[in-house]
């Protein structure tokens, strides 16, 4: 390294320092602090602060509420992301062939995406109303107890979440479709490819990368999902819709068990990191990132 290179490098580091310091203060410090909290029994209201090592993690290992929440989180994530990706792509394809109503459809999609989660949840609360809700009226006046039946509550919450976030996938896929040159399709037509063959050999491979990225974002959001179930069911009935983040929130802010709640937070963090790692490997394999 020449002197000039060394100087440039030093300059570069200096320039990056504010950003790194910011990241350190806002991310690394609280992260390490939460990890430290999770090794303690810490209940400030009662003046309890003692180091208990892995005690909370050992309790969680055998805590049925934790495992139920973990299972709920997994089911919610897989089901909602799969539905969002499937419906999102279908809608993007439908939008492409729309001529006159494309703008209206696009605005409606954006509206669903732009609405705050709590508002969406409140709206769905009325849609699911057992007697007067639109959902039961449409289903020929069935008296389905959407939010009060442990078997129906999670599907009901998933549908509300899909309605809200599917536009994200649809809009990204739509943008990608716009960038595919029409010559490609004309060539396929000349080669005698039918609609299915075009979809399979041209559209699908070209959409693949953008959908993977959309799915990555959606998965990370779904793993940390909170507002929809918090408003719709409060995690009930019988914890049927309690995700790990709701469990962490209740422990932290309602029971004020800072150590115990932090331990759940650390596990959610580890889970999100693992999933991110796996996705990034896949994306690298696909050549999306380096």
């Amino acid at each position: 390294m020449t002197r000039r290179e060394r100087r440039l490098r030093r300059q570069g580091l200096l320039m990056m320092a504010p950003a790194l310091a910011m990241l350190g203060i806002l991310t690394a410090y609280p992260g390490v602090y939460v990890l430290w909290l999770s090794l303690q029994q810490r209940v400030p209201v009662f003046g309890i602060a003692e180091f208990i090592g892995l005690g909370h993690y050992r309790f969680l290992l055998e805590d049925p509420r934790f495992w139920t929440a973990a299972r709920t989180t997994a089911v919610f994530t897989v089901a909602s992301v799969a539905l969002e990706a499937g419906l999102g792509i279908a809608i993007a394809l439908a939008l492409r062939s729309q001529q006159s109503l494309q703008r209206v459809a696009f605005s409606l999609l954006l509206l669903g995406w732009a609405m705050p989660g709590v508002v969406t949840a409140k709206m769905f609360e009325w849609l699911y109303h057992p007697a007067a809700g639109l959902v039961n009226v449409v289903l020929a006046h069935r008296a389905l107890n959407w939010l009060g039946d442990p078997g129906l509550a999670l599907p009901a919450v998933i549908v509300a979440d899909v309605w809200r976030t599917m536009p994200f996938v649809a809009i990204l896929a739509h943008a990608r479709l716009l960038s595919i040159p029409s010559e490609v399709y004309e060539a396929a037509l000349v080669d005698g490819a039918g609609r299915l063959a075009t979809l399979r050999y041209i559209t699908a491979p070209l959409l693949r990368q953008i959908v993977l990225i959309a799915v990555l974002f959606r998965t990370l959001d779904a793993l940390r999902a909170f507002d929809v179930m918090y408003v719709l069911t409060g995690g009930g009935p019988a914890n049927a819709t309690e995700t790990l983040t709701i469990y962490a929130y209740r422990s932290l802010f309602q029971m004020l068990q800072l150590g115990f709640g932090s331990a759940i937070g650390v596990i959610v963090f580890a889970l999100v990191m693992t999933v991110t790692f796996v996705y990034l490997r896949v994306l690298r394999h696909e050549g999306v990132t380096t």
């Binding site: 039946d149 442990p150 995690g235 009935p237 019988a238 914890n239 029971m255």
Partner: peptide
């Protein structure tokens, strides 16, 4: 907070 899910489980008939 601890008892709510337990009581709810009784009310919906799964415990």
């Amino acid at each position: 907070t601890t008892l709510q899910p337990e009581f709810s489980a009784v009310l919906v008939g799964i415990k």
